[in-house]
């Protein structure tokens, strides 16, 4: 399977609270709460790091999980979040994606 790149939408406001990322979509005012592993993926979504590398660095290196399980879970999570429009997915790196801790005004 070819690699993918993920970037956070700019149409959101996000804050981390108690290890969980809280995200408000500016498009439809939907309010999302991510668990700790999902938050780690979200924070690593800089648009330039391949998803396979994010799985290793943000998930497998930090949490006790089999790499294949982590990859499958992250793939499903990314697909679901992209359907809600707050995570952008591409087969190429994004030019002007935001880096940083994943929080946004």
């Amino acid at each position: 399977m070819s690699d993918r790149y993920i970037a956070r939408s700019t149409e959101i406001a996000a804050r981390i609270l108690g290890g969980e990322m809280m995200i408000m979509s500016a498009v439809d005012s939907t309010f999302f709460t991510l668990n700790e592993v999902a938050t780690a993926v979200w924070q690593a979504a800089d648009g330039r790091t391949p998803l396979s590398e994010i799985v290793v660095r943000a998930v497998c290196d930090q949490f006790e999980v089999d790499p294949e399980v982590a990859r499958a879970d992250v793939d499903a999570f990314v697909d679901e979040l992209s359907r809600h429009g707050i995570l952008l997915v591409s087969d190429r790196p994004f030019d002007n994606a935001s880096s940083g801790p994943g929080e946004a005004a």
Partner: peptide
């Protein structure tokens, strides 16, 4: 005698999930 070393210091894993509500 059993060798845990690899996972030492790692946090328990939970499937990445989110919940959402229409504000």
């Amino acid at each position: 005698h059993k060798e845990s070393a690899r996972s030492a210091g790692k946090k328990p894993y939970h499937k990445p999930e989110f919940r959402f509500e229409r504000a």
